[in-house]
Design a protein around this nucleic acid. Structure first.
Length: 251
DNA sequence: AACGGAAGCAACCGCAACTAT
DNA sequence: AATAGTTGCGGTTGCTTCCGT
């Protein structure tokens, strides 16, 4: 199948957005809502690719975007989530209200990747961002095989249904992925049941989970998988069970 | 003050997943 | 089921600003 380019590049503006373009885009989305990105530039009178409009809106113009420096708490959460999820920026951003995946990705690449792995950085003489492209390609977490990074697969979950708690599940939610309703605690289902734990992270209390760790104990926990705290270990097992079930469902 | 290198960040690109027909 | 169109994600690029000399 030959893919059509998302738009003709001819006659379109590129590079930085002007305040006028921002206003046109913002006004249009306020009036018509998000979506239909391909048609948006034509309808709004913008000389931009639809993809570019989407990116500009999501990363910069959206009213719920939090501007300003990343706080220490946010930074700590990013570090922990990255240790857990790897470069799943959209998932990480989903746990940081008002922050975008692009912002977190940039922040990681410019600040945290060097902070968290200074030795690797020094070893490769990564004196600048342009000169260490090869070093950047190496995920410092993955380079250490002892770190248990969960490779999740992002799945769009469209609806969340609320139900009363039952005895077998500590959560009160059922998650519907692709219009199929399933409990948010699929790891409790029998082995012979066909399980698709899509949407697992949707319901997982990440901040609560993370707050159980003190200082750098999370990294140690990633290494040996044992915190000595039954409550934390239980949460970890829940995470892993979701991943295992996901793998099993994927065949 | 001028210059060059480093750093930060917005924007672009390609691909894969998802959805519609 | 196959194909075409749309959306979302992660990697990368390149422009702008900062900072040291």
């Amino acid at each position: 199948m030959v893919r059509k380019p998302c738009c003709s590049k001819e006659g379109l503006n590129r590079g930085a957005w002007s305040p006028r373009e921002d206003k046109i885009l913002t006004d249009y989305i306020k009036a018509h809502g998000e979506g239909k990105w391909r048609d948006l530039p034509k309808n709004a009178g913008l000389k931009r690719c639809g993809k570019s409009c989407r990116l500009r809106w999501l990363n910069y113009l959206r009213p719920d975007i939090k501007r300003g420096n990343i706080t220490e708490d946010e930074e700590n959460l990013i570090v922990k989530l990255h240790a857990l999820l790897g470069n799943r920026w959209s998932l990480i951003a989903g746990r940081l209200p008002g922050r975008t995946d692009n912002e977190i990705k940039n922040y990681w690449n410019t600040n945290l990747s060097k902070k968290t792995m200074p030795r690797l950085c020094d070893d490769r003489r990564c004196s600048n961002s342009k000169g260490n492209k090869e070093a950047d390609k190496l995920d410092p977490v993955n380079e250490q095989p002892s770190h248990r990074v969960i490779r999740t697969k992002a799945v769009r979950c469209t609806k969340v249904y609320n139900l009363a708690k039952d005895d077998n599940c500590s959560s009160s939610k059922l998650i519907a992925c692709n219009d199929e309703i399933r409990p948010s605690c699929p790891w409790l289902l029998p082995d012979d049941q066909d399980i698709d734990p899509s949407g697992f992270l949707e319901d997982f209390d990440m901040e609560g989970f993370m707050s159980d760790f003190q200082d750098d104990s999370f990294l140690q926990y990633c290494i040996d998988g044992n915190s000595g705290d039954d409550r934390i270990d239980g949460d970890w097992n829940v995470m892993m069970a979701g991943e295992l079930a996901r793998d099993r469902a994927a065949g």
